[in-house]
Amino acid sequence: MNERPKRILVLDDEEAIRLSLEMFLGDFSWQVHTAADTATALKLIEHNCIDLALVDVRLAGESGNRFIVEALKIQPKLKVLIHTGSIDYAVPPELQKLGIGEAQVVRKPQPDLMRFLALLEAQLAGS
């Protein structure tokens, strides 16, 4: 019996990051959706069942934090990882109330993509 592909949404306004993650995860049979802005990402969440959202917090327009709040209203079981280059980012109280903590924060850049993949897998497994 074949396992269905894992479905991930990569929300990042940097095209190079979106494309590189799309290609990398695609090599491991992930079904990858990408978005450069929150409006597009929310439409994808509304029309697709997504297992995991990888969300940049500093976006043009609305923040990734706001996206997470709205996305969880649409798909309450969505797993979320915050993907940020900010060394001083702290999970705001509004996200902490939704069960998101420092364990769901991943810093850019990712020097070891295989470790990054293991982190995504662990998040989906609920670890």
Results as ranks from 00 to 15, higher is better:
86 S>E: 14
16 A>H: 12
121 E>T: 12
43 K>E: 15
97 K>M: 02
87 I>S: 13
45 I>E: 11
66 R>Y: 07
78 L>D: 11
26 G>Q: 04
95 L>P: 01
106 V>Q: 04
6 K>L: 13
114 M>S: 12
67 F>G: 10
79 K>F: 00
65 N>Y: 01
117 L>G: 05
56 D>L: 02
115 R>K: 13
76 P>I: 04
104 Q>V: 01
42 L>S: 10
4 R>M: 13
21 L>W: 02
60 A>I: 05
98 L>M: 10
84 T>S: 13
118 A>P: 00
63 S>T: 15
21 L>F: 14
45 I>H: 06
27 D>F: 00
99 G>I: 01
64 G>M: 11
13 D>R: 05
70 E>K: 15
6 K>H: 08
16 A>N: 12
57 V>A: 03
89 Y>F: 15
99 G>Y: 00
64 G>D: 10
85 G>C: 09
59 L>E: 12
62 E>K: 14
23 M>G: 07
85 G>R: 03
8 I>T: 14
44 L>T: 14
28 F>D: 14
28 F>A: 06
78 L>H: 08
110 Q>E: 13
126 G>Q: 09
58 R>L: 11
51 D>P: 06
60 A>T: 10
126 G>F: 04
50 I>V: 15
37 D>E: 14
86 S>W: 05
118 A>M: 09
107 R>V: 01
24 F>R: 01
34 T>V: 15
112 D>M: 00
119 L>R: 15
37 D>W: 07
69 V>T: 13
55 V>Y: 02
96 Q>Y: 00
119 L>D: 07
87 I>V: 04
81 L>P: 09
95 L>M: 01
42 L>Q: 05
20 S>A: 12
41 A>G: 02
95 L>E: 03
81 L>K: 09
20 S>D: 08
5 P>W: 08
122 A>Q: 11
24 F>Y: 15
44 L>H: 05
47 H>D: 10
90 A>W: 03
84 T>M: 06
46 E>F: 03
6 K>I: 14
64 G>N: 08
88 D>Y: 11
3 E>L: 15
54 L>V: 13
31 Q>F: 09
119 L>W: 02
40 T>G: 09
87 I>K: 13
11 L>W: 11
74 I>H: 03
111 P>I: 04
8 I>Y: 03
109 P>I: 07
39 A>W: 00
67 F>Y: 12
26 G>S: 06
28 F>T: 02
117 L>Q: 05
5 P>T: 04
15 E>D: 08
19 L>N: 12
45 I>R: 03
69 V>H: 04
22 E>R: 15
28 F>K: 14
32 V>E: 10
98 L>S: 01
73 K>I: 06
83 H>Q: 07
49 C>A: 15
107 R>Y: 11
75 Q>S: 15
30 W>P: 03
47 H>Q: 06
72 L>V: 03
83 H>V: 09
107 R>L: 14
100 I>E: 01
82 I>N: 02
81 L>F: 08
23 M>Y: 10
105 V>Y: 01
123 Q>S: 14
31 Q>M: 09
112 D>E: 12
103 A>T: 12
42 L>M: 04
102 E>Q: 14
23 M>T: 12
37 D>R: 10
48 N>K: 06
